[in-house]
Amino acid sequence: MNPIIQVKNLSKSFGANVVLQHIELEIEKQQVVVVIGPSGSGKSTLLRCLNLLEKPEQGEVWIEGRSLMDKKMKIEEIRTEVGMVFQQFNLFPHMSVIDNIMLSPMKVRKWSSSQARKKAIELLHKVGLTEKAEAYPSSLSGGQAQRVAIARALAMEPKIMLFDEPTSALDPEMVGEVLAVMKDLANEGMTMIVVTHEMGFAREVGDEIIFMEQGQIVEKSSPQQLFDNPKHERTREFLSKVL
C-alpha cells in the first residue's frame, strides 16, 4: 500500500534561518504520528508545509500520491483533504459555533444548508457540545473552543488531521477533554500527525514518535522504543528534560 503522506528531502528556510533540513517521512493510512522536540525545532513548520500554509522550498511532498509541488495542482483541493487544528483555536468570532462548522462545507463543498447542519450537529454530538450550537466562540472555555475547532475541521471530512500543540494554550484541567476527542478520532482510524508536549498521550495513542531538533528528524520509532530506549543521545537529553 502507498503511504498517504510522503515527504522526500524537504527543506525550508526563512531568510538565512534554515528551519527544515532534508526531511524524509512516510506515513501510512490510519497511522497516528506524534512529533516532539524543543521549541524552534521546526515542528509547526513541518506541519504547515503539509497543507501549504508554508511553501516547501526544496524536495517533494505527496499527499495521497498527489505532489504538492506540482504547479497545476489546486492548493484548495489538497487542503480540503487535510484538516488542521491550531494551538490558538482560531474560531471565527463573528459566527456562532454551528456556523463556524457549517461555513466551509457550504462554501467550499457546496453542501446545502440542511445537509451541512446535519453534519455539524452530528459532529457537535461527537465532541460533546450539542448544547453550544448557537453559542458564540467568546463564551466558550478553551477546552470547548478547541473541541469546536476539531469539529469544524472534521466537517470537511478530511482524510488527514494535523494538530499543532492543540492543548498547549489550555488550562490543565481542560487538556483531558480535548485529548479524549483526539483519542476517539485515532481509534476510528483517522490518519493524524500531532505535535504535542503531552508525553502520556504520545505513548498511549501514537503509533510512531518523531523527535525533531534543529530542523531535522533525529529519531523516529515506536513509543516503547523511543521513550524507554532512545537510540540517540540528543533524544535522551530532551526526554530527561520533559519527562
Binding site: 500554509l53 484548495e76 487542503r79 491550531f86 471565527f92 466551509s104 475547532a149 469544524r152 470537511m156
Partner: peptide, 15 residues
C-alpha cells in the same frame, strides 16, 4: 490565525 484557519478549511483567497 483567522485567515490561516480559513485557508486550512479549503477556502480560496476571495472566500
Amino acid at each position: 490565525g483567522q485567515s490561516e484557519a480559513a485557508y486550512s478549511l479549503g477556502m480560496t483567497k476571495s472566500k
